[in-house]
Design a protein around this nucleic acid. Sequence first.
DNA 1: TATATTTGCTTGCAAATTGCAAGTGCAAAT
DNA 2: ATTTGCACTTGCAATTTGCAAGCAAATATA
Lengths: 144, 144
Amino acid sequence: MEANKKRSDCPLSCSLDVFGDKWSLLIIRDLMFFQKSTYNDFLKSAEGIATNILASRLKGLEENGIIEKSVHPDSKAKILYRLTPKGIDLLPIIMEVYIWSDKYYEMPAELKATIKEAKNDKDKFVKLVTKELKSKMTEKKGNS
Amino acid sequence: MEANKKRSDCPLSCSLDVFGDKWSLLIIRDLMFFQKSTYNDFLKSAEGIATNILASRLKGLEENGIIEKSVHPDSKAKILYRLTPKGIDLLPIIMEVYIWSDKYYEMPAELKATIKEAKNDKDKFVKLVTKELKSKMTEKKGNS
DNA sequence: TATATTTGCTTGCAAATTGCAAGTGCAAAT
DNA sequence: ATTTGCACTTGCAATTTGCAAGCAAATATA
């Protein structure tokens, strides 16, 4: 749980030091596509992340500027996690993973239309979703 | 070291079960961009992968159809690893990681031109590199 | 032809990380 | 006043990682 000494100067290697594990991108996925934004939201995801691992990943993602905490509009007991611009910019990567996956594995029915849309015009899809995410970002401000 | 039970039906989660770790994509990077193709080539990479981890990752990538072994033209003692079409199709993902990285971190000078080329016309870049990789694929055939 | 070296691993073991269950402290609802 | 919800932390066992050494087959060298 300390500062990350990077393994090499390779940008890919450095990026994997940030999100190269089995859980980080799933948290980001939940923030991007499934309107999840609290600790318990992430805990409830289908993959079943352990609570200590979730805490450690959230900490890492925050330290790396991918997500940030803010006060929840509903209650002081809740913490609202959200993507930073740097986190939102991971969208093209995640989109390409979905597209790759669509080519080689089976796709849940509910996702087919979205993937098709993304494949059809990647740039358009990225711009649209980015815009939505950025607008959500500025809805309410407040750092914890 | 057994069959992978997937954590959920999510394509992203399934993809991370295949290459969601700190090492797999680095091996793929070496195959894609740095003309590395043998066990010792991968061992020598800057990040310093441990030999047992390398063996385990190569096995996993092969089981998942990302890479395949073939006989090395130079010697029977050598094994030539190479990307399958499924592995080559990971290029857009890796490219987007590089592009993201370029935006938020520092880029080694030798990579700047390539990234610029990729950013300038992603489709063109993917098609060009894919073509190169596929042509290299069919140079010599031979399963081990 | 005998010996040394290269190549692609495997094995053993300590250290780190993960996963599971239970607990804690504060806020809010009853 | 008490219970419930939320965001974690803690303890511990199981798994994975990292390091060093070893090993068999193929090749290079003397």
